[in-house]
Design a protein around this nucleic acid. Structure first.
Lengths: 203, 203
DNA sequence: CCATTTCCATAACGGACGGTATATAATGTC
DNA sequence: GACATTATATACCGTCCGTTATGGAAATGG
């Protein structure tokens, strides 16, 4: 199903670019949240009508999931890349700098879609919320494993609390996201980042 | 106005306790957010009907503001108390421990109403969101002033970045709130707290 | 050229939302 | 006891929500 490769080329071709439309939808979800983004706002931003949206993406929830895929693929790439840093502190630094760049880009919504979508919501969005939380857990797990490697490498102390460190670095990133979404200036978050980095043990 | 003292005692007395009702409303807002909390959920939790709610609290927005007042008065008291700690690190520790207790109470919703209400939302809740952000700024300012005092006292280095430290400690608390709202266990957040505290400079 | 397929545009659907009008019940005042 | 006042109960309002039915336009395959 959905074999979009080798387009069918039968019938009238769609008049909009599906990737552009999805990117536009992502921006709306990113700034308003799942529930806060109405179909009217979405279709206006995407430049298409409601039936076109439903034909191309299924429904609102499935559109959000596709937007979330795009977000993780493009905007959260820094997370995977950060794990390649040579030391634990290097990983932390790349994570924080990547979060800052992603949350404070000039031409995109402030904050983090994952944070926005994982906080409290109405009943209808509960399924979305749980999915976002589940996806975050896999990132969490990857960072735990990277820090375990760091402990073996010796750049984390043998008695370091790895779960604590992982939760901590996520907390700083999430806190930055909250503040970015609340209108904090980029330089404010830069100082938060530097402060946190300064405290990180070792090098 | 609103001289509720020396109750008027004229007309039919209301059959519910207004403070209990407000506390119940707070719990709903706290777990669902402003938009996620419907009038149906609110009235059911408060044990009153819609007209009673409107007669006693005005409308949904004004009910939320009163609930927010209650929240800040009761659940955020630890913030004011924390400023009395003798050292900057003591302030940080009290803030983090207070946040943990408030966000992970067994008998109340997880997370932080301020965080929940300050992230992205629909258009109708924008005014609420801005008010919550404004209230947080006054807390921020109070902590900045406390840290400036700490610098004069000598328990913060003369070249310490006070705005950075303040934003940082708020970020950790907000990150803990995000994780608490996402279902993190209390012991997880306790380790985040201890990790952050361990890194704090000085004593 | 026709049939088919797919898309676009309009407009409507049922339902939930926040908010109220109306009528009735319960109190204090005179 | 009659009146003024306030709270409750029921039922309803208009609006917006996500979703879809309908009708026609545009492109391809035969």
């Amino acid at each position: 199903m959905e074999m979009d490769l080798c387009a069918p080329t039968k019938g009238r071709p769609r008049e909009f670019d599906i990737d552009d439309a999805l990117a536009a939808a992502l921006r709306v979800f990113w700034s308003k949240g799942y529930e806060g983004a109405s179909l009217t706002e979405l279709t206006e931003a995407m430049g298409i009508t409601r039936p076109s949206l439903y034909a191309a993406f299924g429904n609102k929830e499935s559109l959000f999931r596709k937007a979330l895929d795009l977000y993780e693929r493009e905007k959260l790439a820094y997370m995977r890349a950060a794990l390649d840093a040579p030391t634990a502190k290097g990983v932390a630094e790349r994570l924080l700098r990547g979060a800052l760049a992603s949350q404070c880009s000039e031409c995109e919504p402030k904050g983090c879609l994952g944070v926005i979508s994982s906080v409290a919501c109405g009943a209808e969005a509960e399924a979305i919320r749980e999915e976002v939380i589940k996806r975050r857990q896999s990132s969490h797990k990857a960072l735990v494993e990277r820090f375990e490697q760091a402990k073996r490498d010796g750049d984390l102390a043998a008695d370091a609390d790895i779960d604590g460190l992982t939760g901590y670095i996520f907390a700083v990133m999430q806190g930055m996201a909250v503040q970015a979404g609340a209108g904090a200036k980029r330089e404010d978050l830069e100082r938060v980042l530097e402060t946190s980095l300064m405290m990180w043990p070792g090098r």
